[in-house]
Simulated assay, not measured.
Amino acid sequence: MKRINPIVLFLAGIGFCAVIYGGWHYYQEKRAAAQNQAVFSAPYSGDTFNPKNNAPPPPQH
């Protein structure tokens, strides 16, 4: 039986890791794009600042 060259095994391991990393990176890009789209396509919720609730109280004499 012929022995496999360790350099070939090392390069094959690097290639396998590169494929896994590429798939993970692609998944993360798609996930981030979907979250970004969800944020910008959400309906307008109105202003969070309401001057009636944040006005100072009237002076007490």
Score class of each variant (00 low, 15 high):
residue 25 H to Y: 11
residue 24 W to H: 01
residue 9 L to R: 08
residue 20 I to A: 05
residue 45 S to G: 15
residue 23 G to R: 08
residue 5 N to D: 15
residue 4 I to S: 01
residue 41 S to E: 14
residue 56 P to T: 05
residue 55 A to G: 11
residue 27 Y to P: 01
residue 44 Y to M: 05
residue 46 G to D: 08
residue 30 K to I: 08
residue 38 A to R: 09
residue 19 V to A: 13
residue 29 E to R: 11
residue 41 S to H: 08
residue 32 A to C: 01
residue 24 W to S: 01
residue 42 A to Q: 09
residue 28 Q to S: 06
residue 38 A to K: 11
residue 42 A to L: 07
residue 27 Y to N: 03
residue 18 A to H: 03
residue 49 F to T: 02
residue 18 A to K: 04
residue 10 F to P: 01
residue 50 N to Q: 11
residue 11 L to M: 08
residue 21 Y to G: 07
residue 53 N to E: 15
residue 38 A to L: 12
residue 31 R to S: 09
residue 12 A to D: 03
residue 26 Y to F: 09
residue 19 V to G: 09
residue 47 D to P: 12
residue 54 N to Y: 15
residue 59 P to D: 09
residue 3 R to V: 07
residue 23 G to Y: 11
residue 55 A to L: 11
residue 58 P to T: 00
residue 33 A to N: 07
residue 40 F to C: 05
residue 36 N to M: 10
residue 53 N to D: 13
residue 36 N to Y: 12
residue 12 A to I: 03
residue 31 R to Y: 11
residue 18 A to D: 02
residue 13 G to K: 02
residue 3 R to L: 12
residue 49 F to N: 06
residue 42 A to S: 14
residue 20 I to F: 10
residue 20 I to M: 10
residue 40 F to L: 14
residue 4 I to R: 06
residue 60 Q to I: 14
residue 57 P to G: 14
residue 31 R to W: 10
residue 50 N to H: 13
residue 54 N to G: 08
residue 24 W to G: 00
residue 25 H to V: 03
residue 12 A to R: 06
residue 44 Y to C: 04
residue 47 D to R: 14
residue 55 A to E: 14
residue 3 R to S: 06
residue 5 N to E: 09
residue 33 A to D: 08
residue 26 Y to C: 00
residue 51 P to F: 03
residue 31 R to M: 05
residue 44 Y to R: 04
residue 8 V to E: 05
residue 34 A to E: 15
residue 4 I to N: 02
residue 29 E to L: 14
residue 39 V to N: 00
residue 48 T to V: 15
residue 25 H to S: 07
residue 53 N to C: 03
residue 43 P to E: 05
residue 8 V to G: 01
residue 3 R to T: 06
